[in-house]
């Protein structure tokens, strides 16, 4: 029987110096080609879950199984070929160009001195073009708008050429058209490149419009996985946010 691409089994996450895990044991699976939105209130553990899945921090208990291998047993080099990340921080060094940042996505594939070969260069150009930032390639990171910077970091993750891409609040700081444009980009990447894309967000409206699956974490520290439609039809949303007085009145297309 074929195993799901990503399996999370009895996973509990958090920081060791805090007493309680942020989320109660999680059991969930995901497949390639899915665009999954991770939503939940501030401090609910979205970033912690993303960091745990990318191997930046280790789980308190439980297992993450990626492509039939346990994440803890994958070397950090092999992990760099499986999972790419877009974090909330971004590089600020003064003379760092868009092209340089995207090129670093190819570092796991290039030799000791970090020199890109012809096919790496092509991949970098192609990723910048997919993200619509080819015209920015020579610009410095510090000169970019938030949206342009976000797309650069996505192009970097794309250049890494991994089956899984994790993004921490990629729609934050973008205007509404920017948010929608970014969601369309992620959706296209999931479908066309067959990637499993998991991103956290507070922008419920665009999230519910574009994501295939919603992972919801909230007040009771549980993670629920369901389609946007079934979450909207049920009373999950207000219940999970612990706000029975709030109502959500948007419709799906």
């Amino acid at each position: 029987m074929k195993q799901p691409f990503l399996q999370i089994q009895k996973l509990s996450i958090g920081y060791r110096n805090l007493k309680n895990p942020l989320i109660l044991p999680i059991d969930v699976v995901a497949e390639k080609g899915q665009l999954i939105a991770l939503i939940g209130s501030n401090g609910s553990g979205k970033s912690t879950l993303l960091k745990t899945l990318s191997g930046i921090i280790s789980p308190l208990a439980g297992h993450i199984i990626l492509d039939n291998q346990s994440l803890e047993q994958i070397s950090s080099y092999d992990k760099s070929l499986l999972v790419s990340v877009v974090l909330t921080s971004y590089p600020t060094d003064f003379f760092l160009r868009v092209e340089d940042v995207v090129a670093m996505g190819r570092y796991p594939y290039v030799g000791f001195w970090g020199r890109l070969r012809g096919n790496d260069r092509e991949k970098v150009d192609q990723c910048m073009s997919v993200c619509g930032i080819s015209h920015l390639k020579g610009r410095m990171m510090v000169d970019l708008s938030d949206g342009e910077r976000q797309k650069t970091m996505i192009a970097k993750a794309l250049a890494q050429d991994t089956p899984i891409m994790l993004l921490d609040e990629p729609t934050a700081f973008l205007d509404y058209p920017g948010k929608l444009e970014l969601m369309v980009l992620l959706k296209t990447l999931a479908i066309r490149e067959g990637k499993l894309i998991l991103f956290s967000s507070h922008d419920l409206e665009v999230v519910f419009k574009k994501a295939d699956i919603i992972w919801l974490i909230a007040a009771q520290k549980k993670l629920l996985s369901a389609s946007p439609a079934s979450i909207l039809q049920s009373n999950y949303l207000p219940e999970y946010f612990n706000q029975n007085q709030q109502y959500f009145d948007f419709k799906l297309d």
Binding site: K51, S54, G55, I56, S76, Y77, K79, S80, L81, V83, S84, V85, L87, S89, Y90, P91, D93, L96, D100, V101, M104, G105, Y107, P108, F112, W113, G114, K156, Q160
Partner: peptide, 21 residues
């Protein structure tokens, strides 16, 4: 250390994700 030094410019999280300790 040229390659890891360049990766450090991205920040610790990105550098770790690109395979360095």
């Amino acid at each position: 250390m040229i390659k890891p030094l360049n990766l450090l410019l991205l920040g610790e999280g990105y550098a770790a994700n690109l395979g360095i300790n």
